[in-house]
């Protein structure tokens, strides 16, 4: 058990360092944790993303709290939540001490040119894998499809068409998914 707590802290401390940008930046890491440790199932991960979207608070931190709770109860959620803010806290304090120097740092801008396409690729690869698994009933990454879930394909089209034209409305997308899920499935 102690080892699990330590691992949780270590993994979420790492996420705190490497997840740069909005809350969705933590997603690829959680997905990776899922395949590495099996602390929670893929279905649970999806539920966590949904719940984190509809609860107040920063999504990335919410997901850490939820993951910790699912994996190791209340203490687990305290550990993951603390872990994910440790590195940012240290960075924030250091940066405030040198904020004026930091603003004009060219290297940081260069690095960001590479980080943004990487974030896009990370997120797309997860979106595609999840989509593939959902519409083919498989749990493996890219196993050969035996059958297709036509309901899932229809729902995906229903949701992606209108919502790709408007500003992001996570609550609305999740609500629509839930309602159509009850009707279609």
């Amino acid at each position: 058990m102690l080892k699990l707590y330590f691992l949780l802290y270590y993994e979420f401390f790492k996420i705190g360092i490497f997840a740069i940008g909005g809350g969705y930046a933590t997603l690829p890491f959680l997905y990776f944790l899922q395949s590495k440790y099996n602390w929670f199932s893929l279905d649970e991960l999806t539920n966590m993303i949904a719940v984190s979207n509809i609860t107040p608070g920063p999504i990335g931190i919410n997901m850490a709290t939820y993951t910790g709770y699912t994996t190791a109860g209340i203490l687990g959620s305290v550990i993951t939540t603390t872990a994910i803010i440790t590195a940012p806290f240290i960075t924030a304090v250091i940066i405030m001490k040198l904020i004026n120097k930091f603003k004009s740092c060219r290297e940081i801008n260069y690095i960001f040119k590479g980080l943004r396409p990487a974030s896009c690729a990370l997120l797309i690869s997860i979106g595609l894998k999840l989509l593939y698994q959902t519409i083919t009933f498989t749990k493996e990454d890219w196993s050969f499809p035996v059958q297709f879930d036509y309901h899932a394909i229809i729902l995906f089209i229903i949701l992606i068409l209108p919502f790709s034209f408007m500003k992001k409305r996570p609550l609305l997308v999740i609500l629509a998914g839930a309602i159509f899920g009850i009707i279609l499935k």
Binding site: D43, V173, I174, F180
Partner: peptide
């Protein structure tokens, strides 16, 4: 509902990108 939400999450990820 959660089966449907799973697809919502995929859509949200793609829209974010």
């Amino acid at each position: 509902a959660f089966w449907g939400i799973r697809i919502s999450v995929i859509v949200l990820i793609l829209i974010t990108v």
